[in-house]
């Protein structure tokens, strides 16, 4: 008798397992439907991306939109408001977009960089309120497996910079983290690096493969194909800790004994300040549900991003943004780029 009961329980459990995971989507949909304000949304949601269609941020937003549509009945439209390396779109979101909940910016760290360096006090990152942390990808240094540093570590590279200053060529992108990181390495190593400017990480990687530079700065998504083909090697990541996707690669901080060498594409969703509380809460819940979806997380991992989310709610994301912006302000002020 007991055996039959046990068997029955097993059968029930086995039957329940797939059913329960299939139900989660329906459950989530029901939970979100209960949270939905009566009058919102009645039109498609607009995800604003300040970089061109087809780029990393665009992909991030489109994937997110797809999974918002999976858990709700709302349509999501991705709008690329491009120009001025993102500044035009940032200014639009901060000063012109209506805080009605329909306009959601899918943003990255560039927004506080622009606020500090270009907005001239017309707006700041405080004009936004976060609704979700999406993912992040640390800035990394890579070398060619056939080049000068093919079997060298970051320590060796730093030593070479000190020993023969002005001979190590690194591909950077001017005025953003890529350049800032190279400057920090110069300070730590005690010698000058030849910083060759490119418009983006990928052209720098190509220059590395062609042997025109010794080091390229970039995100995993910009060189994953070459890494898998064993053409390039990652020497260090500008993350706080070693990342889960490359545990064997050290951080700049640990090799060079620094604390502030932390740079990444830190992606989040935000709305212009002043969205009604019920709408903002609803957006937070919808985005959280979409971002928890394992399929979306797998897609983001495929693009080279790290999806581990250490933030409990939108307020924690706002706090993290404040902290990252402060860290960058300190660097910018320290290098004379910003007054005070």
């Amino acid at each position: 008798m007991r055996r039959i009961v046990a068997l029955l329980v097993l059968v029930l459990l086995a039957g329940a397992l797939p059913a329960s995971s299939a139900e989660t989507v329906a459950d989530t949909r029901a939970r979100l439907a209960a949270l939905k304000p009566k009058d919102f949304p009645t039109q498609p949601l607009e995800f604003v991306v300040v970089y061109p269609a087809g780029g990393g941020m665009d992909t991030t937003a489109r994937l997110l939109g797809k999974y918002v549509e999976k858990y709700t009945d709302h349509r999501v439209v991705v709008v690329n408001k491009t120009g001025g390396a993102g500044f035009i779109g940032h200014t639009y979101l901060a000063t012109q977009a209506k805080p009605d909940g329909y306009t959601v910016g899918v943003l990255a760290g560039g927004v506080w960089s622009d606020a500090m360096q270009k907005a001239k006090d017309k707006w700041s990152h405080k004009n936004f309120e976060a609704v979700a942390f999406i993912n992040y990808a640390p800035v990394t240094w890579i070398v060619s497996t056939e080049g000068r540093f093919k079997d060298k570590s970051l320590k060796d590279v730093a030593a070479a910079i000190k020993r023969e200053p002005g001979t190590v060529k690194a591909a950077i992108v001017p005025s953003i983290s890529f350049e800032f990181l190279a400057e920090q390495v110069e300070t730590k190593a005690g010698g000058k690096v030849v910083k060759v400017p490119f418009q983006g990480g990928a052209p720098g990687v190509t220059a590395l493969l062609g042997g025109h530079v010794d080091i390229a700065t970039g995100f995993l998504s910009e060189y994953r194909g070459h890494l898998e083909a064993d053409k390039v090697k990652v020497v260090a990541t500008a993350a706080e800790q070693r990342t889960s996707d490359m545990p064997q690669v050290p951080t700049f901080n640990e090799v060079l004994g620094a604390k502030n060498m932390v740079w990444s594409a830190w992606r989040f969703a935000a709305v212009p300040r002043g969205v009604p509380a019920d709408r903002k809460k609803y957006l937070e819940a919808v985005l959280a549900a979409a971002l928890r979806d394992p399929e979306l997380q797998a897609e983001y991992r495929k693009t080279g991003s790290i999806v581990d989310n250490p933030y409990a709610n939108a307020a924690a994301v706002d706090a993290a943004i404040d902290k990252l912006a402060a860290l960058e302000r300190e660097f910018l002020a320290g290098t004379g780029r910003l007054a005070k």
């Binding site: 087809g54 990393g56 665009d58 994953r224 194909g225 070459h226 898998e228 693009t303």
Partner: peptide, 15 residues
């Protein structure tokens, strides 16, 4: 290239 990436296909020499 963007279309490839959106489809989760990694462009590069390994394609």
């Amino acid at each position: 290239l963007g279309a490839l990436i959106i489809h989760g296909v990694q462009p590069g020499p390994m394609l």
